[in-house]
Design a protein around this nucleic acid. Structure first.
Lengths: 368, 368
DNA sequence: CTGTTAGCGCATTCAG
DNA sequence: CTGAATGCGCTAACAG
């Protein structure tokens, strides 16, 4: 323990505001049998009353509900699942907790899940494939009903997913197209989004376009990078290797530092690019910082466009032109697909939905 | 479904890269009994071999382990918990998934939890107290072994926590001091951190200090605001009501928009503050944006300091002077406390640890 | 060192 | 409409 840490032991003088205990502390939680005893019926009847399965007379149901209330009874999901039922819980795998993308995605997921009576338990991959596989396995060990996976694909990771899918666990991926039968995928057209962003730059008169965040060679489908190259090709501009820089380090996504270092590199080319497309807004923000350090102006000296439209993009100096993806909608759809699979409504066909993105024009790009 | 969404149905041509199924798909997961049959022993023996409880001969253990391997056996945590054992899972309640604070906190928590064999399941409060209570209850319903709560306190929320604590569920809070017996708290000294940040501004020659993000009146302990006022008092500078603005909206934390609007307000006072203390970095970044919009310079016209030292603070224009809190360490300690409580090593005394924060000086403040 | 018995809390199945 | 029996997968407690 650090010397700078002060430990203050409190005697915890139960203040008046501390709520009254409804239940005597230390009591074990009430079970169906307890409720049944109070209500004067057998456990099975209580089960029926609570789950609205089978017939129960109104009089009995009323007595049962009163007992439930009195005992603060809550069904034991575990015992339930043990009998082959659902847990009413799904696992959500995110790359990390820092990315605004994850937040909105979870909002969409929860919206649908809540309505269907499911709970979302979230975990993070921590950047490493081993961690990710372990966390996925932990979800399965805890018998969640299904999985939504929103981490970037890797060969080893895809294998782990396939193994889990083989165990009959419903899976839906977001932003990651895997080729596993029964695994639905929801994503946006990164290729097209990048294509449009780069084309916008070209329309604005730019001919020397830099790209920050190429990604690792083994990474599956560097769609954004491909879209950028395609836009160049469509405009008859040759792709220049020296204008494409990759991230310094490769976490789940490109960071501000990647953008910062990348911009420094690009600014020092003999012929400086007049515009830069950053793989995501974090990198774009880092690039903004580099420009300022260099004493260069955005968008006058170099135009910058990002990708994702994170909340902060509207508050940078200057505000960032970027590509927005329908994150909320992806979350909703992923959850909808998953619930369908869990409840057996999806008749086997593997689904693959690709949504469109949208260019958001702000002030980091100007006509050349 | 939106018209802008393209649906592409794939036939999923099981590519070569799809891994071989280790287990015939559709098979139910192996149980202790299955393993026992293969190994030629009784289930109990398998249980002992796996959990290293009781004596098992090396020969038998080896046979068992082979069977486990062959069948890809994984213990059913639920059945285990049903027998009064642990789930080896703890719930973590975060305000949201977008705040970098949460990411680092989870990193610290996981580090300790992993080492102790526990899994962390995360959920978010979604900003509303009802949601938070429901999510907390869901954790309890799923029989997690303990809870780490890092949301901001509210009266209703504290009551929900007390109810859960009364059900004998171990709880540790982070950044939220609650007065419930048996609930440990870990936090940093926001008061002191704010005091030092404001004092720094004063030392740099500032006398008119603005504050952005006062917080709602019913919120428990607006410690940062109090620290700011104390620094003023210590320097003999009278507190001016018109220099303290609150957030437009009140989500889990102040946002860029709050900082933006707040700065606009402050800049229009008859006597503009020469320095502004924003409750957190998001608000500080919003303030930076407002300054730029106004055609004012930071730090020349107004100095700005934030709180939290989020990753992005080093990449703003100019880089932000801010207060750093030991988030990782808070996560580690919270997890340590929780595991101790779960495993019964905490001998009843309620702990309350307050850590120190640290001022990080960058370029958003200069001598006046 | 290994086997047997019993029961955790619930819902499916079959009898009333 | 309600009750009784049974077993999900696992482990504590007690034999051998």
């Amino acid at each position: 323990m650090d010397a700078s840490i002060m430990t203050k032991k409190t005697t915890t003088p139960n203040r008046a505001k501390t709520p009254v205990r409804v239940q005597p502390p230390g009591r074990k939680r009430a079970t169906l049998a307890d409720v049944a005893r109070i209500a004067g019926v057998v456990p099975m009847t209580v089960s029926r009353a609570i789950n609205r399965s089978g017939y129960v007379s109104d009089a009995v149901r009323k007595r049962v509900m009163e007992a439930v209330e009195k005992l603060q009874y809550r069904p034991n999901m575990l015992a339930r699942q043990l009998k082959g039922q659902r847990m009413y819980a799904v696992g959500v795998m995110l790359p990390d907790i820092a990315n605004p993308f994850g937040n909105e995605l979870v909002l969409g997921i929860k919206e649908v899940l809540d309505a269907s009576g499911y709970t979302a338990f979230i975990t993070t991959s921590g950047g490493s494939v081993e961690n990710e596989s372990a966390a996925l396995q932990s979800f399965v060990d805890h018998r969640i009903d299904g999985l939504i996976v929103a981490t970037r694909g890797t060969v080893a990771g895809d294998k782990a997913l396939a193994d889990i899918a083989a165990q009959q666990v419903p899976i839906v991926t977001v932003g990651r197209e895997v080729e596993i039968t029964g695994v639905d995928c929801v994503s946006v057209d990164h290729y097209r989004g990048a294509f449009e962003a780069a084309s916008h730059l070209i329309e604005m008169g730019h001919k020397r376009l830099g790209y920050i965040g190429v990604g690792h060679p083994e990474d599956p489908a560097p769609l954004r990078f491909e879209g950028y190259k395609a836009a160049l090709a469509a405009a008859g501009i040759p792709f220049r290797e020296e204008y494409a820089v990759r991230e310094v380090d490769a976490p789940a996504f490109a960071t501000e530092e990647d953008g910062y270092q990348g911009m420094l590199l690009l600014a020092n080319r003999k012929q400086r690019p007049t515009a830069v497309f950053a793989r995501n807004d974090f990198a774009a923000i880092g690039a903004l910082r580099a420009m300022h350090t260099l004493g260069l102006k955005v968008p006058q000296d170099v135009a910058i466009v990002g990708f994702d439209n994170i909340r902060m993009s509207a508050y940078t100096t200057p505000p960032l032109t970027t590509v927005e993806q329908p994150i909320l909608e992806q979350g909703r759809m992923a959850a909808r697909f998953l619930v369908e699979r869990i409840e057996g409504h999806a008749k086997g066909k593997t689904r693959n939905v690709v949504m469109a993105s949208k260019l958001v024009k702000r002030e980091s790009v100007m006509k050349r």
